[in-house]
Amino acid sequence: MLTGNFPQLRLRRLRKNENIRRMVRETILTPNDFIYPIFVVDGENIKEEIPSMPGQFRYSIDRLPEILSQVEELGIPAVILFGIPSHKDELGSDSYSERGIIQRAVRKIKQEFPNIYVITDVCFCEYTTHGHCGYLACSGEVCDVDNDRTLELLKKQVVSHAQAGADMVAPSGMMDGMIKAIREALDGAGFTDIPIMSYAAKYASAYYGPFRDAAESAPAFGDRRSYQMDPANSDEALREVALDIKEGADIVMVKPALAYLDVIRRVKNTFKYPTAAYNVSGEYSMVKAAALKGWVDERRIVIETLTSIKRAGADLILTYHALDAARWLREG
């Protein structure tokens, strides 16, 4: 606590110029903090911009080296992959097929960019005809995701990702018991060294809109509030995180980031556990839209935003700003 009083104590002394500000800076942002999300599509020679996410693209597997070479050159250690298959069905079978879009992408990356750490998103919404995050059970006109049947499909998916060469799996469906089921499946298949980054506190958020455009994963009906968290709750987030840690998660995640900085801080303070935060598509697109209008200084607002997420307690930040932010940080 402060021991002196004005005028003897003047806090502005340590803000005098950039050198002293850098010397006393409490939160240091570096490219090592970033995980870059990449959308992968079936086909050849595809690089198509996502309309609702300016500057972000869907890539076919043969064009992944274009973006991965930038990731590697900028010193960003990891990517997370989201697959958009050409074939969808009720069970999302492409998600656990040996020839699935993600499985082929992982093999390509590990062959050509062995030093990039590859994380795979583990879910079903991109792969199912109904756009929900698992096995859909219906009673009359009422449908919902069947939690326990979905766990069996998740086991198949994570093992197929590990067999393809994934370095880490990141289940995002918010199914009860998913971490326990995934850990047992990986261990049973001999992949005891594959860590799990759990989307432990994933909220039913309006900030996901552009992602659903990018990944073609909008629900065909209804919404996901029966399995994703209510935005009004933070105590519940701690219960979710506690269960995932107990079940074997190696990293826990809060998603989205900006509207949930308080949750990130509570998770970090409570568990002292490796914590990730997802700076999601809606957060990204709002900044890009304002920057394109000339309403904000994109460089300054991005660095300020990412710094705030780290300051809140995130050890890792999944962000579509990663390439630009890494360049700006390099430039100083």
Rank of each mutant, 00 (worst) to 15 (best):
L2T: 12
G4N: 03
L9D: 05
L11W: 01
N17M: 06
E18R: 14
E18N: 11
E18M: 08
T30H: 00
P37A: 00
F39W: 06
V40C: 12
V41P: 02
G43M: 08
N45R: 14
N45Y: 10
E49H: 07
P54Y: 00
Q56Y: 13
Q56W: 08
S60W: 04
L68I: 15
V71L: 11
I84G: 00
E90Q: 14
G92Y: 12
S93G: 05
R99K: 14
G100D: 00
I102K: 14
R104Q: 15
A105D: 00
A105Q: 02
A105P: 01
V106P: 08
K108Y: 04
I109Q: 00
K110R: 13
E112C: 02
I116T: 06
V118F: 02
T120W: 07
D121N: 09
C123K: 07
F124L: 11
E126H: 10
T128A: 08
T128Q: 03
H132I: 12
G134K: 15
L136I: 13
S139H: 10
D144S: 15
D144Y: 15
T150A: 12
E152F: 09
L154G: 06
Q157W: 05
Q163V: 15
A166I: 04
I179D: 04
E184R: 09
L186S: 08
D187R: 12
A206N: 10
Y208L: 10
F211H: 08
A220I: 09
G222E: 09
D223C: 12
S226C: 03
Y227P: 12
D230Q: 06
P231I: 04
P231M: 03
P231W: 06
N233V: 09
E236K: 13
L238M: 09
A242Q: 14
L243Y: 06
L243Q: 13
A249R: 04
V254D: 00
V254S: 02
K255T: 07
P256D: 01
A257T: 01
L258M: 15
R265Q: 14
R266D: 11
F271K: 00
A277L: 05
S281W: 00
G282H: 04
V287L: 05
K288A: 03
L292P: 02
G294I: 13
D297R: 01
I301V: 15
I303Q: 04
L306R: 03
A312T: 08
A312M: 13
I317L: 06
L329D: 03
